[in-house]
Design a binder for these strands. Structure first.
Lengths: 338, 338
DNA sequence: GTGAAAGCGCTAACAC
DNA sequence: GTGTTAGCGCTTTCAC
């Protein structure tokens, strides 16, 4: 059915090795032979199969990406795009493993399907435990973290979440805000590291400002984060003058809701996000920019170096965050809301 | 370094074949032997390598996904998630090939890297030419289209774009609108099929309504689609009373812009989208719902069947679209805008 | 229930 | 510049 190297060799009247060389090292084959071989290959619709070469090389040419959820939103989409762009050019396949729920998680670390079946593994925004990292380590392949701790990893890329949220807090403080509310969806430990730092960074930054009242509010997944936000804004007793959302995608829907509630941004309330993701610019949302695509490109390059056994100049890299001041933040209102 | 089947066999005092069977067909191995082998395998951190088995089986256990862009937005993210969920469980790797730009495109169809290196190929929302499909066909693997024509494909899944946009037009007509404007970003032919149908479907639906004025407006990629929209709304001369966007992601930013322009939805202008994607519900955008995740799951199942050589009950499947009437559409204003 | 051995398709010494 | 040959690590008949 499918033509193999032997068929081409036969048809071209040369040996298997010559056919192989024609594709792998064309410069080692004479022009005439090369053309003959190529003609035969074209006639038979032949392409070199990677599988055999993979077997010989000892490499799998697969690289795994562990993510905490099967749902691919902004951050993960950017990571996939960045990794894939670099890895594909280098001849590697990126294969995605969503690890959703604790059973799937246990199963993954029990079976460790990447062992003997991947040349490296990325762990993205995944609150992986030290034990799990150790277990992953028995696969004897490089482990690269994306927004994770660096413990047990061969390399990591990530942002300084604390620094990012501190930029937000200082910006609001400078505008005169003295009562901030941080809103986030309660997250499972599988998504922990980056999120945790963002929240604790918020507290730290607020503590550093005299007379600043700050609260954090964890809300169950779903629409209710907006209800919580509105309720807090309308509270009789010392309502916040600014809402800090854990990520842009939670802040954006608030704009629609506020409009219906007759509340204006930033007149009645200042709002901030985190990520500078989809629609943040259009919504004029003050936020912190991070560039997961760039981090992924760098992470992929680190992975390739590690696979080659090359030393890495900076195994643990922190990428810049940047405050994007837009129109969703302003001086706090001086008069009460009603 | 890495333990292979021979090492385990040696340590367990059995043959390679028995080790192989312990993992591939445990029921063919006696309890006692199995335990011995497993103990040895655990001690050596051994896992079966897929590469060798792949070579023997003649399968590659790779399935390619061709997409028109390296950027992964809502639709593609849903497709990837759906395909991956099914294919991973079946032991296949999903590998993503972004085909961006005509050089990359020509290179891809020239080299045809999927030939001998994938067991099936998905083509997603990619205006592939008949010649390209034919060329792809020489790879002798199933080709499954997602939102493509069915010409030359072994199976396809998709929605009826024309029907979808017609639901929008009829809804607006019923509300009393008689002047519609369809806005879209001009798209390259690589993204053609689905988009083209949506636009021509709009025209057809409008033609079917007496006294309905309809125009379509192609805008260059970028922010300017909003400027175009605002300008049209404010036009002296017979401005549209409803704007129909090609997809939700173009309509959403308009909400923010309109607010700043002092225009209200749906009071001053009705707005519709297409997709029911991120924030459509929160923005109360009237739109047409499609479920790319579900289509992808179905496409993946079709692919697996085709690989197995099984007959497919419905190779060319059309998935339902559903009108989501929300608060962004209402009766047209009766008074002039100013 | 287990072992011996062939071979999947290719690559890389090594010889000529 | 080209051919011969030995494997890469596993699976799978075929014996026993």
């Amino acid at each position: 059915m499918k033509a193999s190297i032997g068929d081409v060799a036969l048809k071209a009247g040369v040996s298997n090795a010559t056919v192989s060389r024609t594709f792998a090292h064309p410069e080692q084959v004479s022009e005439a032979t090369r053309l003959k071989v190529q003609a035969a290959a074209d006639a038979l619709n032949f392409s070199v199969s990677r599988s055999a070469g993979i077997l010989k090389s000892g490499r799998t040419y697969r690289i795994a990406l562990l993510v905490g959820s099967g749902v691919i939103e902004w951050f993960t989409a950017e990571i996939i795009a960045g990794l894939n762009d670099v890895l594909r050019d280098a001849g590697y396949d990126l294969v995605i493993y969503p690890i959703e729920g604790s059973e799937a998680r246990d199963a993954f670390f029990e079976e460790l399907p990447v062992r003997s079946n991947a040349d490296a593994v990325f762990v993205s925004s995944f609150g992986i435990s030290p034990d799990e990292v150790k277990r992953l380590g028995t696969a004897k392949i490089p482990i690269i973290g994306i927004n994770t701790t660096s413990e047990g990893f061969d390399a990591t890329v990530g942002i300084n979440d604390k620094e990012g949220i501190k930029l937000i807090v200082r910006h609001l403080a400078k505008l005169g805000h003295r009562n901030l509310l941080y809103l986030y969806e309660s997250f499972s430990s599988t998504l922990g590291f980056s999120s945790f730092n963002r929240i604790s960074g918020f507290q730290e930054a607020c503590d550093a400002v005299d007379g600043l009242t700050a609260r954090t509010l964890a809300v169950q997944k779903g629409d209710s984060i907006l209800d919580a936000a509105i309720s807090e804004i309308m509270a009789q007793d010392n309502p916040p003058t600014a809402l800090c959302f854990h990520q842009d995608s939670q802040a954006i829907p608030l704009f629609f809701r506020l409009q219906r509630s007759g509340l204006s941004v930033p007149g009645d309330i200042s709002v901030t996000g985190f990520d500078d993701s989809t629609f943040a610019k259009e919504a004029e949302l003050t936020t912190v920019r991070q560039r997961p695509y760039d981090m992924a490109v760098d992470a992929a390059q680190k992975a390739l170096a590690l696979i080659e056994g090359q030393p890495i100049e900076e195994p643990f890299e922190t990428f810049p965050v940047q405050l994007q001041v837009r129109n969703s933040t302003a001086k706090p209102r001086t008069a009460p809301l009603l």
